[in-house]
Design a protein around this nucleic acid. Sequence first.
DNA 1: CGGATGACGACAC
DNA 2: GGTGTCGCCATCC
Length: 93
Amino acid sequence: MDEDYVEAVLALAEQVPPGRVTTYGAIARLVGTAGPRQIGRVMALHGDAVPWWRVVQADGRPATCHDGTALEHLRAEGVPLTASGRVDVTPAR
DNA sequence: CGGATGACGACAC
DNA sequence: GGTGTCGCCATCC
């Protein structure tokens, strides 16, 4: 695995300010390599050093395994959550 | 080398 | 707005 690729992904995830969220697809697009799924893999492997809860799906909903944990973090960060526990991604992207 | 899997995305119904 | 299906790309079996 390219540590360089990992570094780029982590950098983008880390640069996300509180109260704002980004999407896997957005990162994948910015990095310009591979696809959204690989971003998820990188986060799963080395995402322990970054606020992965600020990184959500294009729907604005946290990723499959975290649903619940992420919401707690987001709520603590002051991220505007929608009724269904979704983040308002439209202004974010 | 081929097939299945996954922290996803976009499109159709 | 929710659900189902296909597509992407790297890794695993």
